[in-house]
């Protein structure tokens, strides 16, 4: 299993789907570990009642069906699929509405879905998903990207309420790939995935949605920043190590 995770850390992130299915076929005995530890690009399906797309993941799946957060129905229909309690479903509906506005303000497009379910120890788990196609042909406002995919997965475990406080544990993953392609720069692709965790004890007076939202906004911002500043920056440093920019070597160059 350690070797399998080692391979996932080295394979090009844009091939992570192929890599995972290859590992699943090589080591079926570890499929459960692989599926829970390796994140995959998100897929979408259209809710037939609402004519609106929703995101598929392990958290809204039962057998081969997926529950839509809009109609609360399984697609394709499923007889005895699990549902959140009416109270939690109310929070789920509100979270979907608010998160859609949040998503629009940061992403200027894209799709979002929120799923919630009760867990064993009197708390609940919420999963916030965002998928954005930032390419020219997708939702890219500025039209710079030949290809641009961003998938964010935020899994929030909320502990039971104790003396007005609750423990929130957030695990966020971002997977992205962006490609520009033009005459002067050729094909330029950056792809990657990172995952981070954040823990907080917060007063429930402000409401779960407010607490969860703030944590997600903060961690998502941090992930975006570290991709931009640290991860992309490190690959840029590597390019400059391979071939230092002209101004550094110009002194030694002949007249050219």
């Amino acid at each position: 299993m350690e070797a399998a995770m080692g391979l996932m850390r080295r394979m090009p992130p844009k091939h992570s789907e192929t890599a995972l299915s290859a590992l699943l076929s090589l080591m079926p005995q570890h499929s459960s570990d692989l599926l829970s530890q390796v994140d995959q690009p998100l897929q979408v399906l259209c809710d037939v009642d609402y004519g609106k797309e929703f995101i598929l993941c392990e958290y809204n799946r039962d057998a081969d069906s997926y529950r839509s957060p809009w109609s609360n129905k399984y697609h394709p229909p499923l007889e005895d699929g699990p549902y959140p309690s009416p109270e939690l479903r109310k929070l789920e509906i509100e979270a979907n509405e608010v998160f859609a506005i949040y998503r629009d303000q940061y992403y200027e497009g894209g799709i979002s879905s929120v799923y919630m379910w009760e867990d064993e120890n009197e708390g609940f788990v919420a999963c916030f998903l965002i998928k954005k196609d930032g390419s020219k042909s997708g939702h890219g406002r500025r039209g710079y990207l030949q290809e641009g995919a961003w998938d964010a997965i935020h899994v929030m475990e909320v502990g039971p309420e104790e003396e007005g406080m609750a423990h929130y544990c957030l695990t966020s993953t971002v997977m992205l790939s962006l490609t520009t392609n033009n005459e002067s720069t050729g094909t330029f692709n950056l792809s990657g995935s990172i995952r981070r965790q954040m823990n907080m004890d917060l007063s429930v007076a402000d409401g779960h949605l407010c607490n969860m939202g703030k944590m997600i906004e903060e961690l998502e911002g941090k992930l975006r920043n570290s991709l931009d500043q640290v991860y992309f920056g490190k690959t840029r440093e590597m390019v400059c190590t391979l071939r230092p920019p002209a101004e550094l070597v110009q002194v030694r160059l002949p007249d050219s």
Binding site: M8, R9, R10, M11, P12, P13, T185, G186, T187, F188, N189, L190, S191, G192, S193, I194, R195, L227, Y231, F232, K234, T235, R236, M238, V239, L242
Partner: peptide, 18 residues
């Protein structure tokens, strides 16, 4: 030109030109 940075993550640059 390829670059790979993989401390607590996996980010790769893949650039080509002719």
């Amino acid at each position: 030109v390829d670059a790979h940075y993989f401390e607590e993550g996996n980010v790769q640059l893949d650039a080509k030109h002719e």
